[in-house]
Simulated assay, not measured.
Amino acid sequence: MDESVFGFVSIMAFGCGIYGLYAYIRMKMDGHINETLLLGKKYSEHMCKNKEEFVKKALPAVLVFGIVTTAYGVIDMIHCYVKPIQAVDSAGLVIFLGMLVWYMVYTTKLKNKYF
């Protein structure tokens, strides 16, 4: 596969991570649910049975998502654009994918409980 595709993926991961960190800060400050990261199209914030508790339980997951995704994006950009670091990049990918699965399972359970 072309190297530019991998570089694009690293930039997308970095951007998603930054958005996750932004969403965490916004949720912490204003208490509103970030529908993009946590709910999807079928749900809206006003449908939540206990918004405060949902936000309290979702905040750590959003923070972990933001940190891990940003870190993986940086590692992958270094690997693609600066210096190949295959072992670190591969380990980062495994951690990133594991976190992504955990995040999806955890937030789905939250949705099922509070919506």
Results as ranks from 00 to 15, higher is better:
M1A: 12
S4W: 11
S4A: 10
S4D: 08
V5S: 12
V9E: 02
I11C: 00
A13H: 04
G17F: 08
I18E: 00
I18P: 00
I18D: 00
G20F: 05
L21E: 02
L21P: 00
Y22E: 01
Y22C: 02
A23H: 02
M27V: 04
K28V: 03
M29Y: 07
D30W: 04
I33V: 15
N34E: 13
E35K: 12
T36Y: 14
T36G: 00
T36C: 00
L37I: 13
L38M: 14
L39T: 05
L39S: 09
G40Y: 08
G40F: 08
K42Y: 10
K42N: 14
Y43F: 15
Y43M: 09
S44D: 14
E45L: 04
H46K: 15
H46T: 13
M47T: 04
C48G: 07
C48Q: 05
N50L: 10
E52F: 01
E52R: 14
E53D: 15
F54G: 09
V55M: 05
K56N: 11
K56Q: 12
K56D: 08
L59K: 12
L59S: 07
P60D: 09
A61H: 13
A61R: 05
V62R: 13
L63D: 03
V64L: 14
G66H: 04
G66F: 05
G66Y: 04
I67H: 06
V68Y: 04
Y72E: 10
G73T: 10
V74I: 15
I75C: 07
I75A: 08
I75L: 13
D76G: 14
C80D: 10
C80P: 00
V82C: 07
V82S: 07
K83V: 10
P84F: 06
P84Y: 10
I85G: 03
Q86M: 11
A87N: 12
V88W: 08
S90Q: 13
A91K: 06
L93P: 00
I95G: 02
F96A: 00
F96I: 01
L97D: 01
G98L: 09
G98R: 05
L100T: 12
Y103K: 04
Y103D: 03
V105Q: 01
Y106N: 06
Y106E: 06
K109A: 11
K109W: 07
K109M: 12
L110M: 04
L110E: 04
K111D: 01
K113N: 07
K113Y: 07
K113C: 03
K113L: 06
Y114C: 06
F115E: 03
